Computed example of a mutant assay.
Amino acid sequence: MRRSFAPWSDPAAKPLIRFENVTKRFGDAVAVDHLSLNIYESEFFCLLGPSGCGKTTLMRMLAGFEHPSEGRITLADRDLAGVPPYRRPVNMMFQSYALFPHMSVERNIAFGLKQDGLPKAEIAARVDEMLRLVQLERLAKRSPSQLSGGQRQRVALARALAKKPKVLLLDEPLGALDKKLREETQFELMDIQHDLGMTFVVVTHDQEEAMTMADRIAVMDHGRIVQVATPGEIYEQPKTRFIAEFVGDVNIIEGNVLGQENGHWRVRSRSAQPPLTIDDPDEVLHSDQAVAIAVRPEKMVIQRDPPGTDAVNVLTGEVWDIGYLGDWTVYRVKLASGEILRVTRANRSRYVESPIDWDEQVYVTFAPDAAVILAE
């Protein structure tokens, strides 16, 4: 179901949220720079980027805690200019969770509903619904100090969802959790979002978190959006070198274009002899143009024996470091040019006869369609 959800590819679909040429300045500093973006109803959308790139500022403007210096933000065709946070159909879950320590779990969840003046029976029914949703029925009477980090995170989520906003904003929602719990909670958030059909907008600097949860990702840098696409497109077809290096691990091989041969680009590089052969038909290049070849570590093959005479994209070097990660082994290979390649190999069996070791001479190859040419 998630794979079939793609309203952004339908010209007739109307975005739920629009950022139209939005700029936000703090004095002389520009936090968001002439940014335009569409987010659709029921989308799990992620704003991804390094610290200081403007992603949280963008979310806070949507929530009403900051106001654009220029541009316009609309939600369901309503201009949000001048609308205070408590009048907007959005709710925000903060990284710190901000639970009331003197209130029980159920009273924390009910707080916003009481502020809105809902009838007691409706509040009780809504709280029960949220407790079931986040699987905390047995802990309804406990205080936040009696809960684990993951349980407190669920209470904060239930409180944010209780008012049934059109959009839920989550600012680094899993940052306080340990790695294993964070991974489990990512899938729980996806299930909850899917069940409710609500629009989630998440801010994170964690690439794996964004790749796991989002329908689409907007990668931000210096207040601008560099690329908006599905996780697969961001990873496999990055538009710039910044994206290739920021999202996941990547090897960058510098070179100059020689031209085309049999529909493939030929690239001269000091890292490889003969020239590299790259299948990237979307790029328009010219002879002697400087380019960067991006190849993900898992798309490279490492071996002791020389590849066959028909092999392409052959690089030779020496094993510099080895990291055993259980499911993967990571090899850092130093080429004669001095560059270091990162190559990963899946550990498909428990035992490997005569495994590749430190200081061994090895050959690294990759297929022509495994690489992306980055002209920027």
Rank of each mutant, 00 (worst) to 15 (best):
G255H: 07
Q237D: 04
G27W: 08
Q146S: 12
R25Q: 15
R268F: 09
E183A: 14
G49R: 03
V167N: 05
S36M: 05
G52C: 08
V257N: 03
Q135K: 14
I73G: 02
D28G: 08
A162D: 06
L170W: 05
L80E: 02
Q153T: 04
G150M: 12
I293W: 05
A210N: 04
P368G: 08
K299Q: 10
V343Y: 01
E339R: 12
I340H: 09
M92L: 15
A272C: 15
E183I: 15
Y331M: 10
V202D: 00
Y351N: 14
K120L: 06
V90L: 11
V32G: 06
A272F: 06
I253T: 13
A76W: 02
S271I: 08
F100K: 06
D77I: 00
I356C: 04
E208G: 07
W358K: 11
A12F: 03
D191A: 15
G117T: 09
H222N: 14
V226G: 01
G248E: 14
G232K: 09
V226Q: 13
E376H: 13
L196M: 07
G175Y: 10
K14G: 07
L177D: 02
G150W: 10
W358R: 14
I234H: 02
R18E: 15
F242V: 10
P173D: 06
L157V: 03
H194L: 01
L374D: 13
G117K: 08
S42D: 01
R296T: 08
P85V: 12
W358D: 13
D369K: 09
A272M: 11
I278L: 12
D171Y: 00
L62P: 03
Q361R: 13
A110N: 10
I243F: 02
R266V: 15
E184P: 07
R304P: 01
E209N: 04
D221N: 15
R138T: 13
G149Y: 08
L139K: 14
P355K: 11
A371I: 10
V364Y: 03
D33I: 09
V167D: 05
V22D: 06
F187L: 15
G149H: 04
M103V: 05
I17P: 00
Q146N: 09
D79W: 04
P275T: 10
Q273A: 14
V30D: 11
N262F: 07
D215Y: 04
I252A: 07
L341S: 08
S42M: 01
G317Y: 02
G263R: 08
S36Q: 03
R350H: 05
V155A: 11
